[in-house]
Amino acid sequence: MNIPALLPAAADSNSTDILAIANSPVLWACAIGVFLVIIVQSVIYMKAAKTAAPHIGMTQDEIKTSFRAGAVSALGPSLAVVMVAIALLTIFGTPAVLVRIGLIGSVSYETAAAAIAAKTAGAELGGPTYTQAVFGLALAAMSLGGAMWMIATLVLTPLLKRGDSALRKVNPAIMMVVPGAAMIAAFMVLGIAELPKSWIHVVAFLSSAAIMTILMVIAKRVNKPWIKEWALGIAIILALAITYAATRL
């Protein structure tokens, strides 16, 4: 089915002009929809908290103070996310970045998911094989992956609420070891798979890892948590600058 009216001069499966399709009005509408849903949810939750507060001995002031404390503490992390999101705009387009990186997901999982999806189509993220069709496939995979987290939340929360659920009795040692190892392995194998592609890929990977390591060491030495917060954004931007310099050699 084709609706050309909605997509002026776009939708060419083999075109690498991702942004023509990634910034389409339909994707924008969905992204703004997600924003609105979160706003509505927050309003309902605040109202419910304000109504319940006096009955358990909390003043309206304490609720307001909590809101303000949450807002202020989110400033740094939010701007750090913004920085990473901007670096990814040309890969995924604005609406997808807003929803996947900025909101529901996070940069590490979403980029990994997109890379895995592109691979199944024999393509790579960015570059000449990253066509509009591959972008669509990557967005579909990222969104389905994110949906699984939401579905797990929707299914598990009521079960866990019932208290003494059997789910809490899963061997906690497995819970501690296996997911962490799986996560590190996923990022590691995707990262190392980039290395044989070209020496510039090696420069990009190693410089980013090195800058991150330095920032982590500094954060630990001077005990400044804000460095950890900003580290990912700083590492990505600086490593991209180094990589850009390498391409000009």
């Binding site: 980029t111 510039i200 980013s208 990505i236």
Partner: peptide
């Protein structure tokens, strides 16, 4: 080069 950069 965004992918190797992010992953590093």
């Amino acid at each position: 080069y965004i992918l190797p950069t992010v992953l590093g």
